[in-house]
Design a protein around this nucleic acid. Structure first.
Lengths: 102, 102
DNA sequence: TAGAATGTTAGCCAAATGGCTAATGATCCG
DNA sequence: CGGATCATTAGCCATTTGGCTAACATTCTA
């Protein structure tokens, strides 16, 4: 459990759902109406997001209320920032390495 | 061309290569020696990273010098930050929605 | 020049991914 | 009750992904 969040972000529809949920919680229908694929397909995408821990689900009657879970998103963002930060800390070394290693 | 960077980050080996390159440019061997898979497999992973624009390659004799290309990484990081930022801007609305919608 | 080193291509294969339809479950409402 | 609504499961299929071995191309070096 708590599957790879990067893998979950790999599909455009799933990123679209995240974008929708970032503007506020929503039901499945509200969160997915923008995408032109079948309901079962969307259901699968939601499952992937849920298993990655990126969204939470509360069942309320016949509706499922989805909400963004920021923590895994934060971790993913942090990972990216770290890599970028390290890289940008050694810009001197880079060009010389690429052009002509001593 | 300039394929989906998130998709490229979806595999742990590819993220590992990014981590290695964030510490400085490296040859293929240097960048991949930590991973216990065959050379052709690694070669494929590098191709994915390159097509996503996440790394650059300069061929120098028999060695290929790899370097991180920060720009797509920055864009991915920015996307995540934006979603998180929006979400965190409406924490009041969230709980009421989840618990009891008016 | 022969062999070692670096890396890629070609081709194969099993498993995962992403789509679909049909059917099901559960709930709301007239 | 009975139909409409919201959403999922089950099962199918084509494509993609990620791994492998074998073979090749290039370059360095003893």
């Amino acid at each position: 459990m708590a599957n790879d969040p990067f893998k979950a972000l790999a599909h455009p529809i799933r990123r679209g759902v995240i974008e929708r949920l970032a503007q506020g919680p929503a039901t499945v229908r509200e969160a997915t109406s923008a995408f032109d694929v079948s309901k079962p397909t969307l259901s699968k995408h939601l499952r992937v997001l849920e298993e990655a821990g990126l969204i939470t689900r509360v069942i309320d009657g016949r509706e499922h209320r989805l909400a963004l879970a920021v923590e895994p998103l934060r971790e993913a963002g942090t990972w990216i920032d770290e890599q970028r930060g390290r890289w940008e800390g050694l810009f001197d070394a880079v060009e010389s390495y690429l052009e002509n290693r001593a």
